[in-house]
Every structure is written in C-alpha cells, then in structure tokens.
Amino acid sequence: MPYPSDFKYTKEHEWIKAEGKYATIGITTYAQDSLGDIVFVDLPKVGAELTVGKVFGSVESVKAVSDLYAPASGTVKEVNTALTTAPEKINQDAHAAWMVKLELKDPGELNALLSAADYEKFVSEEGGH
C-alpha cells in the first residue's frame, strides 16, 4: 500500500500523522504526481495558528499553484525549512517530506479524516475519469 496506514488523509490531498497531541502534515504522493515538478512552497511560521479546513500555505509546481488546507487545527511548532530550498524533496518522497509539525488543538478532529484505504479508493475514482 503506497499510503501509510498510520496517516489520515483529506480530500484535498494532505496527509497527517499524529503522535499523541503532536502531528506532522504533508501532501500525498497523488498530489505531488498531479502537480508535477514542485518548485516552490509557502509555509506558515512557527507559532502560527491553523484552523481545520482553512488554507495554511501553498505549493507550486512549474505549471500550477495549489493551496494547502489544514487537516486539523493547532499551533505550528516546527517548519520543515529544508523544503524551502529543495522543494523537489516533495516529488521524491511526499510521505516523508513533512511540511509542518503541529500541536493539535483537538486530536479528535482526525476521526473525520479518510483512512489510507478510503483515500486510496477516493483517488482511484478521482484519477479514473
């Protein structure tokens, strides 16, 4: 399975991996493949407050701009600044290229997200037409 089962997923193609009250967030393999060569990421600063479902940054490939939506609410504790200078890391391994680390406001929010199996089904339908 290309989508790790310990991650949760959004229909906007973000993943989130929670460990207790902390979580890391990135975009999925499907998202990076759809975008193509990623050349720019715009991420929030440490301390920023994210609200579930709201835009918290953006990622741009050569051909497209895509907003990033927060899979959960919380406070940004860490930002993967390596992606700023080497955004191609997202193409190379999207599920390892985490963008921000959050302190979750309510870990229960993750229950509303897709499981790996559900997400895989969702993208196979989205990509299939």
């Binding site: 493949d33 193509g36 060569d37 050349v39 490939s61 050569v62 051909k63």
Partner: peptide
C-alpha cells in the same frame, strides 16, 4: 500532452 513522466516531467 502537458508532460511525459517517462521524459522526466516539465523541467
């Protein structure tokens, strides 16, 4: 065609 993954993509 917008790009060919087999060619390595746009860049």
């Amino acid at each position: 065609p917008v790009e060919y993954p087999s060619s390595g993509g746009i860049i």
